[in-house]
């Protein structure tokens, strides 16, 4: 998180812009080169299981891709919730009152110390016993992912908000803004711009961690791959395709985050 935050402050020179484009192209070339390179490995590969040009391969591919919806829905829902919860949790950390700061510390420390997979199993198998409310696998996954991530988001928000100069609060006070308006119009817009790379990082992390919900039976990408693998006995090909699926998703996300950063940096610079 730390290292990513500095890089966006560098002014892109024309040379850097060209370099970036080059890097982007080479990244995709690498990806394309991966497939024939692997298939060249001789007998150990049997690409027919996922070859779109034959019928069963095409059906298998379609089956694998049908997990895409859950992966995306799960990650997006969990990310949205964890951003909101993370922001709410981060605010007491900036309070002058020790009791409020403690609530933040306790939440962050407790939630951060539970392994995600363990939390997921606990929410799915344990929480219904505790509450008597049956929650499905999808929402168990959302709860576990967003709870776990919110502790990290809270720390990111705290860092971002604390990085905004004290003079900004004072200036806001002299134009008679209250706490909510100061946060909404003055502090958060500046903080969010600075933490965008870190948030992008978390989103990528979230996308990858969503694969863990396969364990509690959500029909997302990893689960589909598992299921296909048990009928086709071709784990190498199937999991390779699975890796490519995640790679494409994540490259798209990182391109999106970069685009947003560029857009937000247009105009002002401090």
């Amino acid at each position: 998180m730390g290292t990513g935050m500095d890089s966006h402050n560098l002014k892109p020179t024309p040379h850097g812009e060209r370099g970036k484009k080059k890097a982007r192209v080479s990244r995709w070339l690498l990806l394309l080169a991966l497939i024939p390179a692997l298939s060249a490995c001789g007998d150990s590969f049997g690409w027919y299981v996922v070859d779109p040009t034959n019928k069963s391969g095409w059906l298998n591919l379609k089956f694998m891709l049908s997990g895409l919806w859950y992966t995306i829905a799960l990650s997006l829902t969990a990310m949205s919730i964890s951003l909101v919860v993370g922001l709410i949790v981060s605010l007491p950390a900036l309070s002058p009152y020790k009791a409020l700061r403690m609530t933040n510390r306790v939440y962050v420390d407790v939630v951060r110390s539970v392994p995600l997979l363990v939390l997921m199993l606990w929410v799915y198998h344990g929480l219904p016993i505790l509450t008597g409310i049956q929650i499905g696998a999808f929402w168990s996954g959302v709860i576990a992912l967003s709870a776990s991530d919110s502790a990290f988001e809270a720390e990111i928000f705290r860092g971002g908000i604390q990085s905004v100069d004290k003079g900004q609060y004072e200036a806001a006070q002299t134009v008679a803004l209250g706490y909510t308006d100061t946060m909404r119009f003055v502090i958060l817009p500046q903080a969010i711009k600075r933490i965008l790379p870190a948030i992008g990082n978390q989103f990528i992390y979230m996308l990858k961690m969503s694969s863990l919900v396969s364990v509690i039976g959500v029909e997302e990408l990893t689960r589909k791959a598992n299921e296909l693998s048990t009928v086709e006995y071709r784990p190498l090909e199937i999991y390779t395709v699975l890796i490519l699926e995640y790679m494409v998703l994540i490259l798209l996300v990182s391109a999106g985050v970069r685009w947003m950063e560029r857009r937000m940096l247009a105009g002002e610079r401090r």
């Binding site: 100069d165 003079g167 900004q168 004072e170 200036a171 806001a172 134009v175 008679a176 803004l177 209250g178 308006d181 119009f185 003055v186 817009p189 500046q190 711009k193 002002e268 401090r270």
Partner: peptide, 24 residues
């Protein structure tokens, strides 16, 4: 202030209207 403390993410005009609109 000595350090101006303008809001860097807002235009000059937005810097000037924020207070009157939100708190007045």
């Amino acid at each position: 202030f000595q350090q101006f403390n303008l809001f860097p993410h807002l235009t000059v005009l937005q810097n000037l209207t924020l207070g009157p609109v939100r708190s007045r």
